[in-house]
């Protein structure tokens, strides 16, 4: 490869190529590869899905079908902070829906949406396994428990 081309290579692409090479010929590789690709890119752009299809010799329609089936996979870029509001049963009966409504109003986005300033992506999740602290939400890896509508604004303000 010429030097000029070398410079043009995106390190993410190199990483993806490594992942694909590592999984070549292995059964059941698609989902772990998608997970790794999402770690690399932050989401799953269409070109990445096409590359994965070629690399694993899987029709791209199937790759897309899998990527749109599982809640973990994102086909659009995420905001800087991912806010997951738990609507598990415990949180629901302890007022999780009201917390969610407040957040939706505060951010102006619904489930799956990203704020215009790219600050937050809002996701509704079914249970984060912290039922003892209901109602709860997670921002990135931090769990916030025993929430109430009036506590929301203060927490959100801590995130750039």
């Amino acid at each position: 490869m010429c030097e000029l081309c070398q410079d043009l290579i995106d390190p993410k692409e190199t990483k993806l190529a490594e992942v694909l090479a590592g999984y070549a010929g292995r059964k059941g590789a698609l989902i772990p590869v998608l997970q790794k690709a999402q770690e690399i890119y932050g989401y799953l752009p269409a070109d990445v899905l096409r590359r994965i299809g070629r690399g694993l010799k899987i029709p791209v329609a199937r790759v897309y079908g899998v990527a749109t089936f599982y809640a973990q996979f994102r086909l659009t870029p995420m905001g800087q902070n991912v806010l997951r509001v738990c609507l598990g049963t415990a949180c629901h009966v302890r007022g999780g829906a009201k917390v969610l409504e407040t957040i939706e109003q505060e951010l102006g986005v619904k489930d799956g949406g990203t704020t215009e300033d790219q600050r937050f992506t809002l996701e509704i999740v079914a249970c984060i396994g912290a039922c003892g602290l209901a109602p709860t939400m997670m921002i990135n890896d931090q769990v916030y428990g025993r929430l109430a509508p009036d506590k929301v604004a203060g927490i959100l303000a801590q995130y750039e």
Binding site: L87, G88, T89, A90, C127, G129, C131
Partner: peptide, 11 residues
């Protein structure tokens, strides 16, 4: 794949 909302014993 403990998916039931409100269950976390497997975790």
């Amino acid at each position: 794949d403990e998916g039931d909302p409100g269950a976390f014993m497997d975790r």
